[in-house]
């Protein structure tokens, strides 16, 4: 026992934490000791998390199903029935959720906008989690010059204020969905990179890594086997925290006109377009904004609840 403690201490002292890093503590360490099933059980015991998950699934179904189920041609511009209130609440129009400023059914427009926003959010989080973790982990595992190279790369990526960089890239490349995903990924890669680095720095000296070396495992297998699994819980927890933030960031970009461009749409764009008519009809802004808020709040609550479950 004592021998293991010496090992641990010695290696902590050995490891050169040259850059201040995100502590793996909180989520990282606790997470690695519990199995997936017990985390799921702890999550299901938390009513807030479950309610948030239900709400998010409903939003997801709405965003995916409505554009598929609405008959073709329902989304065409119809100037004669612009800005009608929702018939659902007796607003006088023909559309269940009212119409937008071009007379299209709002229920459909918002669903499409939500789908874009969620698509961008998920793509960004998946890309940043994979690329960022891999960069940080590889750097930390190899150490030395590779580590400082990765560190410098990340510092460079981090120098530019996110929004400013986004504006520059979008004005240079134009605002396609792929550009937005790229823009929003830059900051995330740094965040996940730091997490990957700090977890790898502490677990690369773990006895199970030494044991893996003792049976002849290659560095690649150790990274993609042991260290990937050791990081998984913390990366998932961070991804859940990142997702609503990315969705919100994309909405802000699109809102100020540097995000998704028409004819494509996103929630931020819808709010921007409809707010010109807010004195005539406030409903479209309220509905679109409400959907965005609900999405982000439910995602944030899921994230919190999963983190709590991982810690339990």
């Amino acid at each position: 026992m004592s021998e293991r403690d010496e090992f641990g201490d010695a290696h902590l002292a050995d490891a050169d934490f040259s850059a201040p890093d995100l502590a793996p503590g909180e989520i990282g360490n606790a997470a690695s000791s519990s199995s997936g099933r017990s985390v799921a059980r702890a999550f299901l015991r938390d009513p807030v998390g479950v309610a948030a998950a239900v709400i998010f699934v409903l939003i997801l179904l709405y965003a995916i199903l409505v554009p598929l189920l609405v008959p073709a041609g329902a989304g065409i511009v119809n100037i004669t029935s612009r800005l009608k209130g929702p018939s659902l609440f007796g607003g006088g129009g023909h559309s269940l959720l009212g119409t937008d400023h071009l007379g299209r059914p709002l229920g459909l427009t918002v669903a499409e906008g939500l789908r874009t926003s969620l698509e961008v959010g998920l793509a960004v989080v998946v890309i940043t989690a994979c690329v960022g973790w891999l960069l940080g982990a590889v750097g930390a595992y190899i150490g030395g010059r590779v580590d400082s190279l990765v560190g410098r790369l990340m510092d460079t990526m981090n120098v530019f204020p996110g929004l400013l960089l986004a504006l520059a890239i979008v004005s240079a490349l134009g605002g396609g969905e792929l550009t937005i995903i790229l823009v929003l990924s830059i900051e995330g890669i740094v965040i996940f990179g730091r997490l990957g680095r700090s977890i790898t720095l502490t677990s690369k000296h773990a006895e199970y890594v030494l044991a893996a070396k003792a049976f002849g495992a290659s560095p690649i297998r150790i990274l993609l086997g042991h260290l990937r699994l050791t990081s998984a819980a913390a990366v998932i927890a961070l991804a859940l925290v990142q997702l609503p933030q990315v969705v919100l960031l994309e909405a802000s970009l699109s809102y100020v006109g540097f995000g998704i461009q028409p004819p494509n749409t996103s929630i931020g764009l819808i709010v921007a377009e409809e707010q010109d008519f807010i004195s005539i009809q406030a409903w479209p802004v309220l509905f679109a904004g409400g959907c965005l808020a609900l999405t982000c709040v439910s995602l944030a609550l899921i994230g919190l609840s999963v983190r709590r479950a991982l810690r339990s």
Partner: peptide, 8 residues
């Protein structure tokens, strides 16, 4: 106990 990865 420590020579196996606890999450694998």
């Amino acid at each position: 106990m420590t020579s196996f990865n606890p999450v694998w």
